[in-house]
Design a protein around this nucleic acid. Sequence first.
RNA 1: GUGGCCUUAGCUCAACCGGCAGAGCAGCGGACUGUGGAUCCGCAGGUUACGGGUUCGACCCCCGUAGGCCACCCCA
Length: 428
Amino acid sequence: MPSFRAPRGTRDLLPDVWAGFARLEGIARSLSVRYGYREMEIPLFEQTSVFERGIGEATDVVEKELFRIAPRTEESESWALRPEATAGVVRAYVQHGMQTWPQPVKLTVVGPMFRYDRPQAGRYRQFYQWSAEAIGDAGPAVDAEVIEMGRRFYVEAGVPDVQVLLNSIGDSACRPAYLATLKSYFGGHEAELPELERRRLELNPLRLLDSKDPAMKALVAAAPKISDCLCEACQVHFAAVRAHLDAVGVEYRIEPTLVRGLDYYARTAFEFYRRGAEGQQQALGGGGRYDGLVELLGGRPTPAIGFALGLDRVLLTLEEVGAETAHETPPLAVVAGADPADTVSRLRVASLLRAEGLSVRAELATRKLGRQLETASKEHAHFAVIIGDELAEGNVQLKDLEAGTQRLVPLADLARELARAAKSHHHG
RNA sequence: GUGGCCUUAGCUCAACCGGCAGAGCAGCGGACUGUGGAUCCGCAGGUUACGGGUUCGACCCCCGUAGGCCACCCCA
């Protein structure tokens, strides 16, 4: 057994798996450009307080899942690996004075995130997200645009039956009153509450709505609904978001129990789930409006909205439904040689072709020709360039491995011939 | 962080009640010394996750640790 292995909750993404990630990242980048989001990168770690203040000290993400880096000395700063991108992006927005850019500032990040929780399928300590943030626009149209972009990602990735769950959680004008109502409602039934739910009543009453405890079902169903308590402005905003979604043909389900815990979250909250994903109630993505976060991290009051989509979970889902995840690009040609010992000629011809921009693998092992061709076939190379005695006259054999045909080609024409064949192969 | 199930070759899995650790696939080589996904033959690959215990004897039973999976908590 190997004495070293990938750390718990992490995994090596070997080439065939990584090809799936690369494909998803390609779709994400393509959508970012089409929707006017500019890609950037932020550090993989930040001062711990960026997350503590940006995400909230009372959240699970910070309280028990934050991947902390042990300080090197007593005095040194406390660091943590990023559990999501939003806090860091907003920190960057403030640091670089992006409020002076044309608003809204639309940014995306693609990359690994870290959470120190117990691993499970589709839940890793290092996982990959595509996240998008639109900072500086309070209007409902942006909400719809963000949601539509997320929805389109799943369509283009090939994930079937993705459902948009939507809710409005109110804002600083109306949520405090709702929270009070909720608290007194559940407080009135405190005797019936399980232990866990009783603790939530104090910390985060909204979470009670989310409870999966069967004993809570009736109580939750009869609980006062946020939708009945929204202030005028929130109602108008929510209605406008829905109208915009309808206009762009995004279907959604209003989910009154969908919540975001913290004070600076406001109004729009949404999650992406796969319909009928039995057993795993893991979201494929989610997001919402976080008016208030910019201010919390030292900027001026600025409205913002964004999402984070989990690439690992998308890939997992694609495998579950038996969809094509990705294929690696095979080499156009393999340069093989009749004389196993003559690696010089093979390397030289390969170098020539590569200089012309062609993707070729040189067979450098001193194996006999049959083996060389066997490997080339297995890796689905389109052609084999076979070098033998004819090289003395400046010729090589160009073999089409799929058709099984071959012909003599002057070395001087080889690159051109292959390039032409490549074109017809890719479009044929 | 809590509870449950699991761990044998690179991969998928066998091994009777506790009695000599095996096969298929993949890899490498040969049959075939200038022509490939087939076939046949061979080679290599193991401290049975790790550590301890019980036993004449442990892949098998017991304890611990690590890792994976499932359900919670929560989220991507």
